[in-house]
C-alpha cells in the first residue's frame, strides 16, 4: 500500500472535475492534494518540487496534458514522476500517444471511484516492484 501522505497534483481545466478527483483521493486516504488548471500552471508547480504523483486531464488551454507529460518526461528532475491520465479523449490514437509519451495509466471519463482506485494501486504496485 502506498504512503497516504503521497503528494498529488490534480490537473484539469474544469474545477468540478478537480474537486471530484480531490474528493475521491481523500476518500482513498490521500489527503495531500494540490490542483492546477492547465499544463503551464502544473509544470510551474511541479518544478517547485515536492510532488510525487500527477493526475492529469488531456484537453486543456495553454498547455494540454500530453504536452505536460512530454515536458515531465523530458525534465531531468521530474522524469520519474508517475503520471495518470484521466481524460474524456477516447480515441485509440490518444491512448497510444499517451502510452508512447510515457503515461503510467489511462482512465477514460466518465470513470468510477473503483476504477481510479484500481489504476492508482496498479501504478503504486509497479513502482514498488521497480524500486525493490
Amino acid at each position: 500500500m502506498a504512503n497516504t501522505n503521497t503528494k498529488f497534483l490534480v490537473v484539469d481545466d474544469f474545477s468540478t472535475m478537480r474537486r471530484i478527483v480531490r474528493n475521491l483521493l481523500k476518500e482513498l486516504g490521500y489527503t495531500n492534494v494540490d490542483e492546477a488548471e492547465d499544463g503551464v500552471a502544473a509544470l510551474s508547480k511541479l518544478k517547485g518540487g515536492g510532488f510525487e504523483f500527477v493526475v492529469s486531464d488531456w484537453n486543456m488551454p495553454n498547455m494540454d496534458g500530453l504536452t505536460l507529460l512530454q515536458n515531465i518526461r523530458a525534465d531531468a528532475e521530474l522524469s520519474k514522476l508517475p503520471v495518470l491520465m484521466v481524460t474524456a479523449e477516447a480515441k485509440k490514437e490518444n491512448i497510444i500517444a499517451a502510452a508512447q509519451a510515457g503515461a503510467n495509466g489511462y482512465v477514460v471519463k466518465p470513470f468510477t471511484a473503483a476504477t481510479l482506485d484500481e489504476k492508482l494501486s496498479k501504478i503504486f504496485e509497479k513502482l514498488e516492484k521497480a524500486g525493490a
Binding site: 474524456a88 480515441k91 477514460v108
Partner: peptide, 19 residues
C-alpha cells in the same frame, strides 16, 4: 487532432467505448 473531447458516439471507428 488529439483533442476531440468526449466521444458522443461510442460506436464510432477508432474510439474506445469503455475503460
Amino acid at each position: 487532432s488529439l483533442m476531440n473531447g468526449p466521444q458522443i458516439d461510442p460506436g464510432a471507428v477508432d474510439v474506445v467505448a469503455s475503460q
